[in-house]
Design a protein around this nucleic acid. Structure first.
Lengths: 242, 242
DNA sequence: CGGCGATGTTACGTTCCTGAAACAAATTTT
DNA sequence: AAAATTTGTTTCAGGAACGTAACATCGCCG
């Protein structure tokens, strides 16, 4: 469980300790700095998601750090300050801070605000680790499977006009590409939970056949949907997420 | 100078007035709502960047609005509350709010926080020139959907005379163009009151049928509103903003 | 109170999906 | 090679999902 990396810049050793404990427990990777210099070092050397920033530091003003952060990386910035001063708040926020929290505060509020900032931060990095959530997949034969509109398009952008059942089947196969799925698995994954599967049920075979025909996957050696005799079916090849 | 659209949901008339004045001066387009119902209406019909949300409203809890907002659009959410209660803060932030501000506050702080939220928001929507910001849309069939007057016009400027229900439906479909929407989604997104949806409810079908008839969308292959059997409906084609 | 328009409900016709049956083809077993 | 098993494919009927008309209901406004 690694929810992200947080840099805490704070010269009060007690608060620093409490923060560190709490956030580590919370599942974050925590870096600590007690002055501007060491903060800069961390910023240069580590990938940081959120910075907790105390403005009053022994060797300079934290405001400069905001500027540095905005120019050098996209980390979220939450200012922690002992002063409840509107002008200071406005200055920090205008300079690019994402939030401003007045001491003293409760840990769970801070944690919630970190989450809120991270949420927005993640929303702005759409391409990266998209695992199973992608809306569009490119199948090995070049067809595009678009979950958002229940459609499959061939390279020339004509639609394959799959039925809902056929689409679900293809979707399940693509999701477990390069793994064999038994008829029973396919049967249950393609319908809303409540259906009994009979071992002699040929329903899946028929759907497979119809699907193959529609996507032009008759048996030519690089076959997309392969039959594993006695076991089930498997969609094989490279799947790209778009 | 149009810096964005802000929806202020607040039942205190005085505060509402002050907010409105200040934000308008600041260059924002300001929408006002004093209860959940009218807020839902604005959310359904307007492209909103940031919502200022008072939790205590005469006809319900603002928390539900957070849920609605997170699911239906990507607006930033700033909660304004009279209570300085950590648990409430945490709940709001966890549900998806971007910031939480305790009354009383100074206008300039609020303005700075709005800017901070908008900054993050903009950072996340540069690539898809998403259609959510316009009052007028051109549908794939050439008709113009005008949110400001609740009407739809064809290329010869004749009006389609949609009822409000039909208009809402079309609006929701257009907002999620090229994505399938279930009957349940359509049902709930088109009515403000949180009516219960029955799976066997055909109300949506009927509305779809009436809508299709009025905009001349009988089944000819390039069909605007497509039926995805067993799933729902989808408006497909290119949507231009005007 | 009565008409009117908008919306939901019921009912029925239609379309289209789906799985069972049946047979052919392929593969394995005897 | 024949039999047995498994899978591919077509046909077909049942039924689920949908389209739509007709009717019922609700709310609104005079």
């Amino acid at each position: 469980m690694h929810k992200g990396t947080i840099l805490s810049v704070e010269d009060d050793e007690h608060l620093q300790f409490v923060l560190s404990e709490y956030l580590t427990d919370d599942g974050y990777n925590v870096l600590l700095a007690r002055d501007v210099r060491s903060a800069q070092e961390h910023i240069a050397n580590s990938a940081i998601n959120v910075v907790l920033l105390d403005l009053v530091l022994p060797d300079g003003d934290g405001l400069n750090l905001i500027t540095l952060l905005k120019s050098s990386c996209s980390a979220g910035i939450i200012v922690l300050s002992g002063k409840n001063d509107t002008t200071e708040k406005v200055v920090c926020l205008e300079m690019g801070a994402d939030d401003y929290l007045t001491k003293p505060f409760e840990m769970r509020e801070m944690s919630a605000r970190i989450k809120a900032v991270m949420r927005r931060l993640e929303a702005q990095t759409p391409p990266p680790p998209s695992n199973e959530l992608s809306e569009k997949l490119r199948l090995p034969n070049g067809w595009i499977l678009d979950r958002s509109c229940y459609q499959v398009f061939d390279p020339e952008a004509r639609s394959a006009e799959l039925t809902t059942g056929e689409f679900r089947l293809l979707n399940v196969l693509a999701q477990s590409a390069n793994r064999v799925l038994s008829r029973e698995q396919l049967f249950e994954l393609t319908r809303e939970g409540n259906a009994a599967f009979d071992v002699y049920d040929r329903a899946v075979d028929i759907q497979i056949a119809r699907l193959r025909k529609k996507i032009g996957d008759v048996q030519k050696p690089p076959q997309l949907i392969r039959t594993i005799r006695g076991v089930g079916y498997m969609l094989c090849g490279q799947i790209d997420t778009l």
